[in-house]
């Protein structure tokens, strides 16, 4: 018996990445942690990290360090708060986002 594969929207993937960064707290999250938490391939991870940086939703904690760590910006925190509200609302109506 095959299980139905659930596809995530791009917005959900970005939110999952941001959640991983938020959960890491003030120390920030490294790429590996984000990759596992958001269940992404390396290529996708790089692409989406760039997008999050470009939109100023996350920031690099220490760019001199060889292993970059990322922190959530105030804008990112606000976005995630809004996303959680929208997620609850959508799921209440049985709409997957």
């Amino acid at each position: 018996m095959s299980r139905k594969k659930v596809y995530r929207s791009k917005m959900r993937i970005l939110a999952d990445m941001m959640r991983a960064v938020q959960e890491a707290g003030v120390e920030g999250a490294g790429p590996t942690k984000i990759l596992y938490a958001a269940n992404l391939s390396h290529d996708r991870l790089t692409q989406y990290l760039e997008e999050l940086l470009e939109k100023e939703l996350i920031t690099i904690l220490d760019s001199n360090c060889s292993n970059k760590t990322y922190l959530l910006t105030d804008k990112g925190r606000e976005f995630l708060r809004e996303f959680v509200k929208v997620e609850r609302f959508s799921e209440a109506f049985g709409i997957e986002i």
Binding site: S9, M11, E82, F83, V86, F89, S90, F93, I95, E96, I97
Partner: peptide
């Protein structure tokens, strides 16, 4: 208005339908 804003954030068409 709420569903419309949710659609703008997520791009999920079903929210637009709602």
């Amino acid at each position: 208005i709420y569903a419309s804003n949710a659609y703008k954030i997520t791009g999920q068409k079903k929210l637009s339908d709602l």
